Simulated scan of single mutants.
Amino acid sequence: MRVVWLDGSAAAIAALAEAVAAAVEGGETVLPLNAADPSAQSLLEAMSPEQPVEPDTAVIIATSGSTGAPKGVLLSARALTASATSTHVRLGGPGSWLLATPAHYIGGLQVLVRARLAGMKPAFLTGEGFRTDAFAAAAAPVLAAEGPRYTALVPTQLVRLLDDGGAGLAAARAFDAIVLGAAATSPKLRTRAEEAGVRIVPAYGMSETASGCVYDGVPLDGVRVEQDADERLCISGDVLAHGYRLAPELSAESFHGGWFRTSDRGRLLPDGRVEVLGRADDVINTGGVKVSAASVERVLGSCPGVREACVVGLPDAEWGEAVVALVVAEQTVDANALRAAVRTELGAAATPKRLEFATELPLRGPGKVDRTAVRARFVAP
């Protein structure tokens, strides 16, 4: 196993790109880790690099996820290349790529795989944080190349580009497609992007599916999505991982018969598109009524002046769980009006018992809302 430590430098990313290319061609398994992550050492220890690697493993994506328990997703060369090839088919053919998200997560690492398969050298956005001027500078060589030009972002990065305007937004407009993943794309953000002339492709997927496997509601070629009896989405296809590092029981629980059972609720629409309804563990049982946190978030997010919202459940002596919401507003918004909108759309049980405002939502990983941090905010003394 080859461990590649990423420190934000172009040299480290270039080393990872070469290591991944070699792994895809049958070389040593690669484990990318973020040198700045305080939990990186514990992740490394959990991956036990001294022990033999599971067969057919090109890359291990290590993460603590939402539970805090280390988990290593085993990805084969077949899964990585199937995802990259299907992505190019869906977007409009092989092209040049800008890496603008952390490469130790699957969304960033797949940019390296796609660029390699396209025979192109990817450009890198380096440094700490996300600055729109740095994005524009890093995008310049990609946008100067012939053929399709692509990048992958998370919603918070897109919001920053739209807010700041200028050279960063101009660069975003010049891409033939921007794959938007890691978190859901709200209808409001989609509309903002369209009005600004930015071509986005919302993607749904995870490390276990070698990155996005459903683009704008439509599964990639070779990917099948079904819904089980519990409304959980199940996925099959060559893009699937083949298990978890040193966790045969967890692997058998999640991967069975060529299918991966996700942690997300969803449904298949009559036109064949996939609608993701939110994580199964984000359902709030309040007063005996099951409330989808994602549904409440959608209603709040559609209200005038609201940029985004996170809804969670808190233990409550009377209700079992109480619905609470943390809202990011673009202007002064009446909390009572927001509650009324939820009550009208979803009923009294879904109406937040508490609603607070913040300048931004806490994030974890590549751009997912940190629901644990949101809960902590409401229970803090």
Results as ranks from 00 to 15, higher is better:
Val4Asn: 06
Thr191Val: 03
Leu268Pro: 09
Leu277Trp: 13
Ser207Ala: 11
His242Ser: 09
Ala293Lys: 06
Leu162Cys: 00
Val24Ala: 05
Leu162Lys: 00
Leu112Gln: 11
Gly347Gln: 09
Ala118Ser: 13
Asp282Arg: 15
Gly301Cys: 10
Ala138Cys: 07
Ala137Arg: 07
Ala349Ile: 09
Val89Ser: 01
Ala358Cys: 12
Leu158Ala: 04
Thr81Ser: 03
Thr185Pro: 06
Val154Thr: 13
Val291Met: 14
Val274Gln: 03
Thr85His: 00
Ala140Tyr: 06
Gly266Lys: 06
Leu99Arg: 04
Pro352Ile: 03
Val89Gly: 00
Thr57Phe: 03
Ile235Val: 15
Ile178Pro: 01
Glu28Pro: 10
Val20Asp: 07
Gly313Asn: 08
Lys290Pro: 12
Arg190Gly: 03
Trp319Ala: 11
Asp133Asn: 13
Trp5Phe: 09
Cys234Ser: 09
Gly243Ile: 14
Ala335Lys: 04
Ala139Gln: 10
Ala82Met: 05
Val218Ile: 02
Leu169Pro: 13
Asp37Glu: 08
Ala118Tyr: 14
Ala329Val: 03
Gly119Asn: 06
Leu16Ser: 03
Ile13Tyr: 00
Ser42Val: 15
Pro202Lys: 01
Ile178Phe: 08
Ala118Leu: 11
Glu128Ser: 04
Val312Met: 02
Glu253Ala: 09
Gly147Cys: 13
Lys368Asn: 06
Thr286Leu: 12
Val328Met: 04
Ala137Ile: 10
Glu25Leu: 05
Asp228Gly: 07
Ala329Asp: 01
Arg78Pro: 06
Leu189Ala: 01
Ser9Asn: 05
Val283Asn: 07
Ser9Ala: 07
Thr57Lys: 03
Leu189Phe: 01
Tyr204Ala: 05
Ala140Leu: 10
Pro32Asp: 09
Glu25His: 07
Ala182Glu: 12
Arg375Leu: 05
Pro148Ile: 14
Ser236Gln: 06
Arg190Ile: 03
Val311Pro: 03
Val198Asn: 12
Ala118Gln: 13
Ala247Ser: 09
Gln157Tyr: 01
Leu43His: 07
Arg149Ser: 14
Ala139Arg: 11
Pro32Trp: 09
Arg160Tyr: 02
Leu314His: 00
Leu74Val: 13
Leu31Val: 15
Ser211Phe: 03
Pro102Asn: 06
Gly305Thr: 01
Ala17Thr: 14
His104Thr: 14
Val179Asp: 07
Ala170His: 15
Leu16Lys: 05
Ala15Trp: 04
Ala203Asn: 09
Val379Arg: 01
Ala309Trp: 02
Val59Arg: 02
Leu125Thr: 05
Ala79Val: 00
Val111Pro: 02
Leu300His: 06
Ile284Trp: 15
Val369Lys: 05
Thr286Glu: 09
Thr191Gly: 01
Thr351Ser: 01
Gly119Glu: 10
Val198Gly: 11
Leu346Gln: 08
Gly258Val: 14
Glu345Ile: 10
Val369Met: 06
Gly147Lys: 14
Leu143Lys: 14
Arg377Asn: 04
Ile60Gly: 06
Asp230Tyr: 08
Ala335Arg: 02
Ser42Asn: 14
Gly27Lys: 08
Arg192Val: 02
Ala103Cys: 07
Leu44Gln: 11
Ile61Phe: 15
Thr67Met: 07
Glu356Asp: 08
Ala115Cys: 08
Thr67Ser: 07
Leu240Asn: 00
Glu18Asp: 15
Ala182Leu: 13
Leu125Arg: 02
Arg116Cys: 03
Asn285Gln: 14
Ala19Arg: 08
Val291Gln: 12
Gly212Ala: 10
Arg279Gly: 13
